[in-house]
């Protein structure tokens, strides 16, 4: 195999040397978009919707490959060590920022292993409770949770999941520790919430919208900076007095470090075009979210978001003292 390895090294060098000329023809073959979660999940859904539209603009097929495992760090690691030729990209969510703190020994350096393409969408979250939870509105909810901190149970979908992050933020905002009940994924957590086995949860609108509308769970607040069109009567957490309580599950597209800037810009342009598509907006709206704007779908905006979010979550995670390795 020694010969082959040497050949491989030569190829990488050749590609790097030729990258200037190479980018003009980009893309000349199909692109692999790595999604670091299982097929069919919410992140996968976002990726497939966007990939389809981006393919149309790029004139080449984008193939979504699911490389799940270890909170998304395996898939991210795969892309970090992939060839920086623009044919392997990563679509990851907020976990990209939180895993930098949640995992003390990552296989890659989050801030230095990637180039940036742009933000895709930010999914707001909702603070919900079982259908027969007593408090009538959000202020009453906060009072109730504070007063009954030792009996209220809070579900989450596992370490590092959106619901876990939001839950940590919620407890630090209220400054009370609650009994947390982890599940393996949102599905079983929602089942127990529906069945009244646990009391409260904070989860993405993707998962909660239909249940809230169906009256099978109670929605108390949204975690976005402004109220949502789908729930005009539901206050934001900030309105409810939780200062700076703003959590959204933002998604971004990355490429391996060293990917030529022209390639990233080309991808970024395709992303912006895809996000401006009315069909995408409609599909995203069904998921309770909206596509990022053209300004957000840029390398600079994603870089800034990643840096801010790493800094914002570090103290929250460290204070909670939870690590995933």
């Amino acid at each position: 195999m020694a010969v082959s390895v040497k050949v491989g090294g030569f190829t990488v060098a050749a590609i790097l040397a030729a990258s200037g000329a190479f980018a003009q023809a980009y893309p000349e073959r199909s692109i692999t978009m790595v999604v670091p979660f299982a097929a069919g999940g919410p992140t996968d859904t976002v990726a497939r919707l966007v990939a389809e539209k981006m393919s149309a603009d790029l004139g080449q097929q984008i193939i979504v490959e699911n490389v799940g495992g270890a909170g998304g760090t395996l898939g991210a690691g795969r892309v970090a060590s992939a060839e920086a030729d623009g044919y392997t990209v990563l679509l990851h969510h907020i976990g990209m920022a939180t895993s930098a703190t949640l995992y003390r020994s990552l296989a890659y350096d989050t801030l230095n292993a990637f180039e940036y393409v742009g933000l895709v969408t930010s999914v707001p979250m909702t603070i919900v409770a079982r259908a027969d939870f007593e408090p009538a509105d959000f202020p009453a909810f906060i009072d109730y949770v504070k007063a009954n901190a030792d009996t209220v149970t809070m579900a989450n979908a596992g370490i590092g999941a959106a619901s876990h992050l939001c839950g940590m933020m919620f407890m630090s905002a209220l400054d009370v520790p609650l009994v947390t009940v982890p599940y393996k994924g949102t599905g079983p957590a929602m089942t127990d919430l529906l069945g009244g086995q646990v009391d409260i949860m904070c989860d993405q609108t993707t998962n909660t919208t239909k249940q809230i509308q169906g009256g099978t769970i109670k929605g108390y607040a949204v975690t976005s900076p402004a109220r949502l069109d789908i729930f005009p009567d539901m206050p934001t957490a900030i309105e409810g007095g939780l200062d700076g309580f703003e959590v959204s599950i933002w998604h971004g597209i990355y490429s391996p470090k060293g990917t030529p800037a022209e390639v990233n810009d080309r991808l970024s342009a395709a992303l912006q075009k895809a996000l401006a598509d009315a069909d995408i907006a409609a599909r995203f709206a069904e998921l309770g979210t909206a596509p990022s704007t053209a300004e957000e779908a840029t390398p600079a905006a994603l870089k800034a978001t990643l840096e801010t979010e790493i800094g914002r979550w570090k103290p929250v995670i460290e204070a909670a003292g939870v690590y995933a390795d």
Binding site: G40, G41, P42, D44, G185, G187
Partner: peptide
């Protein structure tokens, strides 16, 4: 779970 994804 995959079917849920397909529905979404």
């Amino acid at each position: 779970a995959l079917m849920v994804g397909a529905m979404i």
